[in-house]
């Protein structure tokens, strides 16, 4: 394997993460930061925030299961130690997004039923494809599915959410900025590890490419359900009315405040797929275009 992990250590993780961008945070945000009153007092906005956060918790639970499962499938000690830190990162993500659900008013004893009710079935299918590979201790497919496809999607989704919440909800934006920092390491591990490994296992390419296509389809279906939901249109309208002139969020050169839900969906989908294509091409895997739901 390449020695890109030579410089990585638990000590490095400590100095970068808990002693770096997470220093003096509480559940990922600054002490005292709260969800905005405008969100908590509006049933539509609160419901939509709960729905979005449920997808984040479910996605992070899948990432936790995958990264912990991959530790014992990893063929080398350095990857095992990296995945141990990633496992803690993912567990933290599950915790901070779950805490956000509580902050939004979900009761602790209702958590599992709320998640079961609101998690998009397509997202569950997306996770199932990945976890099947992990269960088989298929390290190459597992790392591509987890650290390139799932983390690549999360990286982009979090960036878009952070940009759109910076002015409106600094608490949520701060939580997201910490998770984005974690995702940088995770996608870096994915690309660097697979970049070296796929050339040793070219026979894995067709299987990995089929997995990427299937996971991408369910990701797009999740986006479609989210953005084409009639409540989403109402939520965006209500959110813009509350924000007034403050809403100047831009991302990828686009002004998010001026866009219709279908335009937002296309921007997000095209950005994630474009990133997949580039990342996979760099490591020698042929990107497979998924069907569009």
């Amino acid at each position: 394997m390449t020695n890109f992990l030579d410089a990585y250590s638990i000590q490095y993780w400590l100095e970068s993460c808990p002693q770096g961008y997470l220093e003096q945070t509480e559940f990922g945000h600054e002490a005292g930061q709260k969800e905005p009153d405008a969100l908590l007092s509006d049933p539509l906005l609160r419901e939509q925030a709960i729905r979005v956060t449920c997808q984040l918790v479910s996605g992070e639970r899948a990432a936790l299961a995958a990264s912990s499962g991959l530790i014992n499938a990893a063929p080398d000690e350095a990857s095992k130690r990296f995945l141990a830190t990633q496992t803690l990162d993912e567990a933290r993500h599950v915790e901070i997004f779950t805490q956000r659900l509580y902050d939004l008013g979900v009761k602790k004893d209702e958590l599992e039923s709320v998640l079961a009710d609101k998690t998009n079935p397509n997202l569950a299918q997306f996770a199932e494809i990945l976890l099947e590979k992990v269960d088989k201790k298929d390290f190459v497919s597992g790392v591509v599915g987890q650290n390139i496809v799932l983390e690549g999607m999360a990286f982009t989704v979090f960036e878009m959410l952070e940009a759109s919440n910076k002015a409106l909800n600094p608490k949520f934006a701060k939580i997201l900025s910490g998770t984005i920092a974690d995702e940088r390491r995770h996608v870096g591990f994915g690309e660097n590890r697979i970049g070296a490994l796929i050339s040793q296992h070219p026979e894995k390419k067709p299987e990995v490419e089929a997995m990427q296509r299937d996971m991408s389809y369910f990701m797009l279906a999740t986006f479609a359900d989210q953005f084409r939901n009639p409540e989403m249109r109402e939520e965006i309208k209500a959110s813009r009315e509350k924000a007034g002139e403050e809403q100047q969020a831009s991302w990828q050169g686009a002004k998010l405040g001026d866009m219709e839900p279908e335009e937002l969906e296309n921007l997000l989908a095209d950005t994630v797929l474009g990133e997949f294509k580039q990342r996979l091409s760099r490591v020698g895997i042929d990107y497979q275009t998924p069907a569009r739901p």
């Binding site: 490095y12 100095e15 970068s16 770096g20 961008y21 220093e23 831009s250 991302w251 990828q252 050169g253």
Partner: peptide, 19 residues
């Protein structure tokens, strides 16, 4: 930029987007 150990932070900065 606070995502790397302190002594290396000056060697990095966040990207502000296409502009």
């Amino acid at each position: 930029f606070d995502e790397v150990p302190r002594k290396y932070r000056k060697y990095y900065r966040k990207w502000e987007g296409p502009d």
